[in-house]
Amino acid sequence: MTETVIQTRDLTKEFIRDEFHVVALKDANLEVRKGEFVALMGPSGSGKSTLLHLIAAMDRPTDGEILVLGENLRSLSDRAIARWRNEHIGFVFQSFNLIPVLTAIENVELPLKLTALKKKERMEHAATALKLVGLGDRLGHLPRQLSGGQEQRVAIARAIVTDPDLILADEPTGNLDAQSAQEILTLLGRLNKEFGKTILLVTHDPHAARFASRIRHLEKGELLPEGQVPADYTVAPM
């Protein structure tokens, strides 16, 4: 039986914004197995990023259960969650989020600074990750010296350098041109197929979602049942 990486049961997130009670996510039930590449789709405000943040333990749910890699995240302290995130999660953002004063290799080294690895080992690991994403010749470049696509590849290298069990990507192609977006999605697909990485991709782009092996749709804070799409959902031709 395939190991379950993510399991949520009746996961709910509510908050108060400007005196209004907002239900960002309601009774979401999601199961992702090891080695899957799942896309979470939905329009803006549908709750897909909220679900991703809850899975990454960047936020705490109002109600429901969440098990990620067998860990009940609600029971962990902030410090334990930070360590858990460093060891098990790789995160790719829409806006790359590299540290501008650090070179590509130094950016990739950042998560490794929290491990027991020595400086030389950290640099070797970071260089390997950068070579894997095709940036072996850009180790000493600062983010401003790289194109958008290259920056996102550095971000992916940073996400995989600790060899995480789960990669969470939040609109990773949102700020890229079509060519670069294609390269990034291909890279994520490769990480899934060749390295067996479990990937959860949040996107509102149907084209990007096609790289996933499974797509789940969200609408107004509700995770629709497997195979169900919103009424107004149309798939653009490839």
Partner: peptide
Amino acid sequence: VREIGILKTLGYTPGA
């Protein structure tokens, strides 16, 4: 502030 958020996402604790 945003960079601090990134570091936290990577696993950096408030103490660090």
